[in-house]
């Protein structure tokens, strides 16, 4: 009986606060199917509940493209994200709250990806292999499975003046 309660608790701990930024639950199959095609299925903890609510209310014009869903699917995913969102600011365990709904412009993202950190440099973002900061999987090779551990980062080989 007790074990049945313990296991989810442990899993929640492992999935835990994003401060370390390493362990995140894998995205659910539905979340990955619906929100992991054009971009990686972002870890829900990268935005707080209010930001996810804004995103899910505006899918018909989602950063310039139509990402609309059938309403039942949208409602299910909104609940999924709300349940896993970062706590709002003020909670000491909360990861830094992004300033906008665009994860890649959040103060947290920019700090984690600042020049010189983990071998990052400005030119790398512009290589064909990366192209855009939203292309998480270019360096975080296990991003699709929800894993962003520093041990699983592999920067693309910089080819300089490459052409494709």
């Amino acid at each position: 009986m007790r074990r049945a309660l313990l296991l989810p608790g442990l899993l929640a701990l492992a999935a835990g606060p994003g401060l370390a930024g390493d362990l995140v639950s894998p995205p659910s199959p539905e979340y990955r199917e619906e929100c992991g095609s054009c971009h990686v299925a972002y870890p829900p903890r990268l935005l707080d509940g209010a930001a996810w609510a804004r995103v899910m209310a505006g899918l018909a014009d989602h950063f310039g493209t139509d990402a609309s869903l059938a309403s039942a699917t949208r409602d299910r995913l909104a609940a999924y994200l709300a349940a896993r969102a970062a706590p709002s600011r003020g909670d000491a365990s909360a990861p830094p709250r992004p300033d906008t709904s665009r994860i890649t412009t959040s103060a947290w993202f920019l700090r984690k990806h600042r020049d010189g950190h983990d071998g990052l440099h400005a030119a790398l973002w512009r290589t064909p292999a990366v192209g855009n900061p939203a292309n998480c999987g270019a360096c975080h090779r296990a991003a699709a499975e929800g894993r962003y551990s520093e041990h699983e980062i592999q920067l693309p080989v910089s080819t300089g003046a490459s052409s494709r």
């Binding site: 054009c38 971009h39 950063f63 310039g64 990366v130 192209g131 855009n132 292309n135 999987g137």
Partner: peptide, 10 residues
């Protein structure tokens, strides 16, 4: 292919 905005492989 790849997404024009995000660069994610398709």
């Amino acid at each position: 292919g790849r997404h024009l905005v995000t660069g994610k492989p398709i």
